[in-house]
């Protein structure tokens, strides 16, 4: 006798977004189900892994680990870390972009003032390239949103593990005339063992709200896994394998909570997660 199962069918869907242009462009979002429940809905675009590099890294091709997106953090523009000028930032980004041949996610250094000075110039320099820029917060979003709007880029909106603020930032940015479909949410990333479960639950709650119609929470999620994981002593101090495993476990947790875009640090961990995503997507209906 077959078991009487309940399958959830939601009315809402997560927004679909494209990053980059031409053949190498990647698509994220579009889900109509919680992660990988293909009997209930679709995940038309598989989650994407971006490898994170810093503009201060020694030049060279990023490790080949199966990723299709590159995230460059402009660490070198920070007043305490080289204080690189906007022109220099553009120069290093251009050479990274030329070597990578992948679409770009570009984030600032975290110093609001310097980011607001540099990111508009970077945005202009990449005008029409359809990059994803970050990071806008509740207190500092106007400059970045205005420049992304003008130059045709998408934007990362961050909130501090708080579903109401997440929604608020999305509304603020949309109110500037920004297409909500060009916003990616960063719910804050925390490593495995350092409050990963808070983010996990915020993401589940946001997803469920989006599926029943909350358009201001229907944005894809980005998580900066590498940065957070490699700050922990469990990743740094117990050998490389444990660090890789820490990054993998954190990434899997975030994927199971609905992550669309993972920014990872260690090429081996990134490779493992790309494989994992492919394995999970085998269940997708053709």
């Amino acid at each position: 006798m077959p078991v009487e199962l309940i399958k959830e069918k939601y009315s809402g869907a997560i927004n679909t977004m494209e990053i980059g242009k031409g053949a190498g462009a990647v698509k994220i979002g579009g889900e109509t189900t919680l992660p990988f429940l293909f009997e209930e809905g679709a995940m038309p675009n598989k989650p994407i892994v971006a490898l994170e590099i810093l503009d201060t890294d020694p030049p060279g091709r990023p490790a080949d680990c199966g990723v299709t997106l590159l995230c460059v953090r402009l660490a070198g523009i920070h007043p305490d870390n080289g204080n690189k000028s906007a022109d220099d930032a553009v120069k290093s980004l251009k050479s990274i972009a030329a070597g990578a041949g992948m679409p770009l996610v570009i984030t600032g250094c975290g110093d609001a003032e310097k980011d607001n000075e540099v990111l508009p110039k970077v945005s202009q320099a990449f005008r029409g390239e359809n990059c994803l820029f970050g990071i806008a917060t509740q207190n500092n979003y106007k400059t970045l949103a205005a420049t992304c709007l003008a130059d045709g880029h998408s934007i990362i909106a961050e909130s501090p593990i708080d579903i109401n603020i997440a929604k608020q930032v999305n509304i603020l940015i949309s109110d500037m005339g920004f297409d909500p479909k060009r916003i990616v949410m960063h719910p804050t990333t925390t490593s495995l063992g350092y409050g990963m479960e808070y983010v996990y639950s915020i993401m589940e709650r946001a997803r469920l709200a989006a599926f029943v119609g909350d358009r201001m929470l229907a944005m894809p999620f980005i998580l900066f896994i590498g940065q957070e994981v490699w700050k922990t002593k469990e990743a740094k101090e117990a050998g490389e394998i444990q660090g890789i495993n820490w990054e993998i476990s954190t990434s899997v947790s975030m994927l199971q909570a609905g992550a669309d875009l993972l920014v990872m640090r260690h090429p081996e961990a990134a490779r493992g997660i790309v494989k994992y995503i492919d394995e999970m997507m085998k269940g997708a209906k053709p």
């Binding site: 063992g193 444990q242 993998i248």
Partner: peptide
């Protein structure tokens, strides 16, 4: 059976079974 494999697995379990009402 390697420690560097089991430890993150156990921490994932510890995280997700944490009581959301009681902050760590």
């Amino acid at each position: 059976t390697k420690k560097e494999f089991i430890f993150p697995l156990l921490v994932a379990r510890q995280d997700v079974y944490q009581d959301p009402q009681k902050p760590v």
